Simulated assay, not measured.
Amino acid sequence: MKEIRKKYYIAFGQNLQKLMDKYDKDVMTVASIGKIEPKGVYRVLNGEHGASLGTIISLAKGLEIEPKELFDFEFDLEIE
């Protein structure tokens, strides 16, 4: 279970990066608008840990999107 969780964190971070590129936002902008520490954004981007509900809301606010967009990515539930 630990492996699949880590894999999910990485996929979530990759999707966050894709959204940041799509909406032309950098870490500092997302952090500032979302009122979150830049360190927290970097940790999610790097797949270091899962984002809490509060962090998800802050990231969505920082990107100026609906939170559901952060979860709109393909994820394989199979463990390799």
Score class of each variant (00 low, 15 high):
residue 1 M to R: 07
residue 1 M to Y: 10
residue 1 M to K: 08
residue 1 M to C: 01
residue 3 E to T: 12
residue 4 I to G: 01
residue 6 K to S: 02
residue 7 K to Q: 06
residue 7 K to P: 12
residue 9 Y to F: 14
residue 9 Y to R: 04
residue 10 I to W: 00
residue 10 I to Q: 06
residue 11 A to P: 09
residue 13 G to Q: 00
residue 13 G to A: 03
residue 14 Q to A: 08
residue 14 Q to C: 06
residue 14 Q to S: 04
residue 15 N to D: 07
residue 16 L to H: 13
residue 16 L to S: 14
residue 17 Q to L: 13
residue 17 Q to K: 15
residue 17 Q to F: 09
residue 17 Q to D: 13
residue 19 L to G: 03
residue 19 L to M: 05
residue 19 L to H: 04
residue 19 L to S: 06
residue 19 L to N: 03
residue 20 M to P: 02
residue 20 M to C: 08
residue 20 M to G: 04
residue 21 D to E: 10
residue 21 D to N: 10
residue 21 D to Y: 02
residue 22 K to E: 15
residue 23 Y to W: 10
residue 24 D to M: 09
residue 25 K to S: 07
residue 27 V to L: 09
residue 27 V to Q: 11
residue 27 V to T: 11
residue 30 V to P: 04
residue 30 V to S: 11
residue 30 V to G: 03
residue 30 V to M: 11
residue 30 V to Q: 13
residue 30 V to K: 13
residue 31 A to N: 09
residue 31 A to P: 12
residue 31 A to I: 05
residue 33 I to E: 14
residue 33 I to F: 12
residue 34 G to W: 00
residue 35 K to T: 03
residue 36 I to R: 13
residue 38 P to S: 01
residue 40 G to E: 12
residue 41 V to M: 13
residue 43 R to M: 14
residue 44 V to T: 11
residue 44 V to C: 05
residue 44 V to R: 02
residue 46 N to E: 14
residue 47 G to W: 00
residue 47 G to R: 00
residue 48 E to W: 07
residue 48 E to P: 04
residue 49 H to T: 12
residue 50 G to V: 07
residue 51 A to E: 08
residue 52 S to L: 10
residue 53 L to Q: 06
residue 53 L to D: 03
residue 53 L to N: 01
residue 54 G to M: 11
residue 54 G to A: 12
residue 54 G to T: 13
residue 55 T to K: 13
residue 56 I to A: 07
residue 56 I to G: 03
residue 57 I to V: 05
residue 57 I to M: 03
residue 57 I to R: 04
residue 58 S to M: 07
residue 59 L to W: 04
residue 60 A to R: 13
residue 60 A to N: 12
residue 61 K to D: 01
residue 62 G to N: 09
residue 63 L to Y: 09
residue 63 L to K: 12
residue 65 I to G: 04
residue 66 E to T: 14
residue 66 E to M: 15
residue 67 P to F: 04
residue 67 P to T: 08
residue 67 P to W: 11
residue 67 P to R: 12
residue 68 K to Y: 14
residue 68 K to G: 02
residue 68 K to E: 12
residue 68 K to W: 15
residue 68 K to T: 11
residue 68 K to D: 09
residue 71 F to M: 13
residue 73 F to G: 11
residue 74 E to L: 08
residue 76 D to S: 14
residue 76 D to G: 03
residue 76 D to A: 01
residue 76 D to W: 01
residue 77 L to K: 15
residue 78 E to V: 05
residue 79 I to E: 04
residue 80 E to A: 10
residue 80 E to S: 14
